[in-house]
């Protein structure tokens, strides 16, 4: 596993997002405490930790999806390109166009493959003509490594694809608005091993254009696809660093306990 990790160490040091001192409350429940994380450009950052540790909660803070949950409140500072995304002037609609999201279960809309991908560009007005929209759809599907499989059935319903294809369709859909950051919430948990391998490969390719944040249950997956890893435990960010370092020389005993399988 070590060689595998060394080979992939190609991180740029440009900060896309910076989170400082983030607290999340669900009603009375203090779900996340004092989280500081940097999301680097052209890098895959993995959030790992046992269930209920707060990793998904933190992911959803990064594009303010927590706004849609009753009683959730966020404190602290999260910057995107130096701008506070929780500033009162920020419209979450605009933010989410820049910070896209892919969910745990593939959730294609009950529309055609084409309309699924074109949905984001249409609502954000990214294409000036039909031809331009066609072009965005094609390039997004290519980036999601799905074009060759669906180019002949763009008008077929997206819900008719296989599970792995559906998830790649959702990735294409998220990529189509040309976001700066792509958030993925356990994107492979509902997929079989072959589809998982395809999506993992895709994530590595996406790194060329986006910064990707992935929440995962699987330590092997984190090790395979990420360059940076953050380990969450009981609402705390325990350790954040290079994936290699986290998996080979963890500094915190809790991290070590988790990656050796003693807690989790």
């Amino acid at each position: 596993m070590k060689d595998h990790l060394e080979r992939r160490m190609t991180t740029t040091d440009l900060n896309r997002m910076t989170a400082r001192n983030v607290q999340v409350y669900y009603g009375q429940n203090h779900a996340l405490k004092d989280v500081d994380v940097d999301i680097l450009d052209k890098t895959v950052t993995a959030f790992i930790g046992p269930s209920g540790c707060g990793k998904s909660t933190f992911l959803r803070c990064l594009n303010r999806m927590n706004d849609t949950i009753q009683g959730a409140s966020v404190e602290g500072q999260i910057l995107l390109e130096g701008e506070d995304i929780y500033d009162r002037r920020v419209d979450p609609v605009q933010l989410r166009a820049k910070v896209g999201m892919v969910f745990q279960k593939p959730n294609p809309f009950p529309k055609s493959v084409y309309d699924n991908v074109a949905y984001g560009p249409r609502i954000h007005g990214l294409a000036r003509s039909k031809a331009e929209l066609d072009q965005i759809v094609e390039s997004s599907l290519r980036r999601a490594a799905l074009w060759n499989e669906v180019k002949d059935r763009l008008t077929a319903p997206g819900t008719g694809l296989s599970g792995g294809q559906q998830q790649r369709l959702c990735i294409a859909r998220a990529v189509a608005t040309n976001p700066e950051v792509l958030l993925m919430d356990e994107p492979c948990s509902a997929l079989d091993p072959i589809a998982t391998a395809q999506v993992e490969e895709l994530i590595d390719e996406l790194r060329a254009n986006f910064s990707v944040v992935i929440v995962t249950h699987s330590m092997q997956q984190a090790a395979r696809v990420s360059q940076k890893t953050a380990f969450f435990h009981l609402g705390h960010l325990v350790e954040y660093g290079d994936t290699t370092q986290i998996f080979t020389k963890p500094r915190d005993p809790r991290t070590e306990a988790y990656i050796t399988g003693r807690i989790g």
């Binding site: 609609v93 166009a97 999201m101 959702c170």
Partner: peptide
């Protein structure tokens, strides 16, 4: 399913766009 709403909101759609273009057609 809530996942469809999340999918749309996660792409930056407003709630009314989500309702008109995703929830109601579904």
């Amino acid at each position: 399913p809530q996942s469809l709403r999340d999918g749309s909101l996660g792409l930056g759609a407003t709630p009314s766009e989500t309702i008109r273009q995703v929830v109601l057609p579904a």
